[in-house]
Design a protein around this nucleic acid. Structure first.
Lengths: 305, 305
DNA sequence: TAAAAATACTCCATAGGTATTTTAT
DNA sequence: ATAAAATACCTATGGAGTATTTTTA
């Protein structure tokens, strides 16, 4: 038994006339009669009552007709759903990102993706760079938004944005009253940096800056992630050096200040496995690329691929 | 796309290995690979991720797998249900009967059928003979249990039972005290007979009896059906002549008495259209035949056809 | 290098077409 | 006698087999 047989059967069941059904199916009557006969033979059951001029469905035929309609509808649904997921219009995308990306362009990028692909379910989570790397390798996630970029030739990369570094100071710090702050002015401060593991990490980038500015911080406090570092700053433990975008969201107890001197900045990069050709991933990277080109005016609706 | 393709796809989706899946399907690997490829081409979507040694389902593949399982299960259900109805083990049977059959062997026959075919839904209704005839012709019912038999060469017949006639008298009738009652003793009574239309009917059979017993009833009251006739007897309107089996169910105000003289009896006959080969009908007639042969010991379970 | 999937090609089963017969009204 | 379904017979598409190549770890 095949779908074609069900379609043929339904045509006859609806027309109650082999000739008309054959015409509707755009085929000759004899093969149609044979198909129905073989269907009946396979089921071991009469589907039509041919005893009179006008053929009729038997009870069994009515039951089979209802099932056949249901099955063909479900086949259609299977096609639609599978195509939608296979072409990226639906499905699931697992995205993880570093904590310091929560307040910059990433939320806007994600909103943009959602507006293009509203039926793709997004699973979002925050991790540090090391966890991002591991999760991407193990395929626990599809997309990793990392800072700095993850080094692995299994990965495909799209630069999302590059931003300057700024200082995060406790709001009661005497440094806040200075008109200009140089890195060297911070030599006596406790530096709150992250992540604690694995080293070398973003923390070492900052320590390198200090070194080249001619000092080593008086004291170093390492936290697991960006959020913890800002929390320590807010309660006066020390100062930190963070991406500029985090200043957008003010936080009680913390003020942000520019500084003079070397500022290598920091880049937020979107990663996916090279071998992950899932359309949801391809589409996300595509939107990321357009977005990075002009983050203030994200690609408008309508040129959806 | 065909059921075979779904089966093939499921095998590969479950084994995640074309070779093993082909072995399980008892076929060679190349045609299996081709079938899957053509499935993917038809859907325009990758179902498997072949980028690494161990193949995997894509998201679209997972969606399609779930749908495919569902569809194949439903196909199975369609086969089962259709066969059950087509072989008479399930479905619907519409039976109508004359009112005077409600209390004799018919209920037992129906119980017997139900015990053989518990999944056949019975639609029961009461009609007079004329309505039975019309309903059977117009296919509103499948089985007609009539008294006397319906004359139509479109019908197949099975005699269900033959029973003697007895008198139905109001319980306060002076006739009840006679040790023997002859029909002629009733000459002065009002006869309550049925059905009113169409004539000639069962009523005329009884009137013929009276004629041959040498009298014409003093008064005649015609009712639409058996139940109405007994009701009139119960309130003292007159006497009636009814099938013996109705005496089994006593009714307030009515007593039943044998009479002396000609007693042609009356037969209850089961009818179906000759062209109605529905297995439910065939089975019902089959059981009727066995049942009529020995109504006290209906065919035991186990020799179900 | 080995294992597995894809491709090349060949064959045959079967679906579909045309012509005709059977059946039912 | 007519309309419709069933049957007979033929053709061709495509599904499955074997042999081989390509690909990936």
């Amino acid at each position: 038994m095949e779908f074609k047989g069900l379609t043929y059967f339904l045509a006859v069941a609806e027309e109650l006339h082999f000739g008309r059904a054959a015409a509707r199916l755009d085929m000759a009557q004899p093969p149609l009669s044979r198909q129905i006969a073989s269907l009946e033979a396979e089921l071991g059951v009469q589907l039509f009552d041919r005893s009179r001029s006008q053929i009729r469905l038997t009870q069994a035929g009515e039951v089979f007709r209802d099932h056949a309609r249901d099955i063909l509808e479900r086949l259609d649904a299977a096609r639609r759903d599978t195509r939608a997921v296979g072409l990226g219009g639906a499905g699931r995308l697992r995205i993880a990102f570093v904590g310091s990306a929560s307040h910059g362009v990433l939320p806007t990028l994600i909103k943009s993706f959602r507006s293009f692909y509203p039926d793709v379910e997004l699973a979002l989570s925050a991790m540090n760079n090391a966890e991002l790397h591991r999760a991407l390798i193990s395929r626990e996630i599809d997309i990793a938004v990392a800072r700095p970029e993850l080094v692995d030739d299994e990965f495909r990369r799209e630069l999302l944005c590059h931003e300057r570094l700024i200082l995060a100071l406790p709001d009661n710090s005497p440094l806040a009253s200075l008109s200009k702050i140089r890195l060297a002015d911070l030599a006596a401060q406790t530096f709150v940096l992250y992540p604690r593991r694995p080293r070398p990490s973003y923390a070492d980038v900052i320590l390198g800056l200090c070194q080249r500015a001619g000092f080593t911080p008086a004291k170093l406090e390492l936290t697991q992630d960006f959020q913890s570092a800002i929390s320590l700053v807010s309660v006066g433990v020390g100062v930190s050096v963070v991406p500029e975008s985090v200043a957008r969201t003010q936080r009680p107890g913390v003020i942000y200040r520019d500084y003079e001197g070397e500022n290598p900045g920091t880049a937020l990069t979107v990663h996916a496995r090279l071998d992950n050709r899932a359309p949801q991933v391809v589409n996300f990277l595509e939107i990321t690329r357009k977005f990075a080109r002009n983050p203030l005016r994200p690609p408008a609706g309508g040129d959806r691929p």
